[in-house]
Amino acid sequence: MGQEHIEIHLPSRLWYIEPVLAFLKQLAQQIGFCQQRIADIQLAIDEICGNAIEHGSEGDDKGIAISIDVNDHQLDILVRDKGTRDRGSWLTAEKLEEISQRRAPDRERGHGIYMVEELSDEVKMEPNSFGGTDVRVRFSLSTDEQRRRDTNPSNKPDD
């Protein structure tokens, strides 16, 4: 598999996240990620897309965009929302500070972005020029996963 680029545009409805997670599962399996890492990828993208829809685009028709760059050893995923009319980006220093200060095990919300940091190999979150938020995450095959895939040709992605 060379470097491939995939674009997905979703309406701002939570229902559409699930089919994306199913697609990512298959993609991650093809690359050779183990089951635990695939679950991590799905959970991280669920959290990011949920934020993008609930806080970054709910109530308008802009939707969200998911860009995936894939090669035979890693997945780079960008989730982009264009902000809401009244609030703009949900990711500001003030909001992050507020979430951080209020975070506690018995809080119902505010855990998602911290989970994404734990689950991904790299993460970058920043306001974008559209008035919304970009969240970029990277998942790389571990040495063990790469070795396992390379010794089992049935797991190897097609060239």
Binding site: L21, A39, L43, D106, R107, E108, R109
Partner: peptide, 17 residues
């Protein structure tokens, strides 16, 4: 259940509280 996110966990935590 094979997958749960923080919203699902949060619903349970909130109800327990």
């Amino acid at each position: 259940v094979q997958h749960i996110n923080s919203t699902g966990v949060g619903a349970i935590v909130g109800a327990a509280k």
